[in-house]
Design a protein around this nucleic acid. Structure first.
Length: 265
DNA sequence: GCCCAGGCCTCGT
DNA sequence: ACGAGGCATGGG
C-alpha cells in the first residue's frame, strides 16, 4: 500500500491508540478483532492480518493533511510541529474500545492505560484472528457480567464503576455506534451523559472514533502548548481559538501541537 | 515519603 | 459559574 504522507512510527506511538507494540521494524497491533502486523519501508507499507481496505480506513489515508499544512505556513507553532513530525495522522478507531480506553485514561499514564486495556482484552476478549496470537478487545456483550470488583482487579482503580456503567448502557441498547450520525455537538453531548466522561474524553471519542476533526481534546499538554504558543489559556478559550484558527481540522492541529509539546519534554 | 499521569465527580462558595 | 479536594495505581 502506498504510504506517502504517513509516518507509522509517529502515528502508532503518539498515544491515541493503546494496543500497538514495535518489534524490530514491525508494528504489532490489535484492531477491531484483528491481529495486524505492519511495516513501513519508505513510501511503502507491508502488512499482514487484514485487508488493504481495512488498513486504509484505520489509518484514515483518505484524509487530506496538505490543507492543514498550507494553513500552518502562517502559523509558526503548528508549522514547527508539523515539520518535526510529518506523517502524524489521526487514526479511525472503534468507538467502544475508544470510549473504554479513554475512560481508563483519566488521571492515568499511558503505560498504565495500555495495561488496563490489555487486562480487559485478556479477561473478556476472544482470540483475535490475523498475524499473531492475541486477544481482541471485548464486545459489550462479552463484558455483560463484569463487576466493579473484577474491573478493579484489572487495575482500573476508581474508573471501574464508570466502565461497568458504560457496559450496562451498551447492553441496554444505547446506540454508541449511531452517535456519529447526529453531528459533533450532539455526539459530544450524548457521550458526556455517561458517568466518568467529561469534555476531554468525549472529544477524544469524537476525534479518534467518529472522525470529527473539529473536536479538540484539551488536556495538560494542550494547555501547555496553547499557553506557550498562542498565549491562550482557559479550556473554553482554547477550544474557541483552535476552532476559529483551524476550523474543521482543529483537532488535527491540536494533535500535532500535543505531540510536539510532549516529545519536547 | 513526595509529585505527576491524555480527568472527572462532588461539594462548597 | 468556579475552584478545591479526592480518587486507584504505578513510576520517577
Amino acid at each position: 500500500m502506498d504510504a506517502k504522507c504517513l509516518s507509522l512510527d509517529t502515528t502508532l506511538s503518539c498515544g491515541q491508540a493503546f494496543r500497538w507494540h514495535k518489534h524490530g521494524e514491525e508494528w504489532h497491533g490489535i484492531v477491531s478483532g484483528k491481529a495486524i502486523s505492519v511495516m513501513q519501508d519508505g513510501k511503502q507499507l507491508h502488512y499482514n492480518g487484514c485487508s488493504e481496505r481495512f488498513l486504509f480506513r484505520y489509518l484514515s489515508m483518505d484524509a487530506d493533511y496538505a490543507c492543514l499544512r498550507r494553513k500552518a505556513r502562517k502559523d509558526p507553532p503548528l508549522l514547527m510541529a508539523m515539520d518535526a513530525y510529518p506523517g502524524l495522522r489521526i487514526l479511525r478507531q472503534d468507538p467502544w474500545e475508544t470510549l473504554v480506553s479513554y475512560i481508563c485514561s483519566a488521571n492515568n499514564s499511558i503505560p498504565n492505560i495500555q495495561r488496563c486495556v490489555e487486562n480487559i482484552a485478556g479477561k473478556y476478549g476472544s482470540r483475535a484472528g490475523g498475524a499473531f496470537e492475541a486477544f481482541a478487545f471485548p464486545q459489550p456483550g462479552q463484558m455483560a457480567d463484569a463487576t466493579e470488583k473484577q474491573l478493579r482487579s484489572l487495575k482500573l482503580g476508581f474508573r471501574a464503576p464508570y466502565v461497568r456503567d458504560a457496559v450496562g448502557l451498551m447492553n441496554d441498547g444505547w446506540d454508541l455506534y449511531g452517535l456519529g450520525r447526529f453531528g459533533y455537538e450532539n455526539a459530544k453531548r450524548e457521550l458526556m451523559t455517561l458517568n466518568g466522561v467529561g469534555e476531554k474524553i468525549a472529544d477524544c471519542v469524537c476525534l479518534f472514533a467518529f472522525g470529527f476533526g473539529e473536536a479538540v481534546p484539551i488536556d495538560v499538554w494542550a494547555r501547555r502548548a496553547c499557553k506557550e504558543s498562542y498565549k491562550c489559556t482557559g479550556d473554553d478559550s482554547i477550544r474557541a481559538f483552535m476552532r476559529k484558527k483551524f476550523g474543521a481540522h482543529a483537532g488535527w492541529a491540536q494533535e500535532y501541537l500535543f505531540h510536539y509539546a510532549r516529545m519536547k519534554q
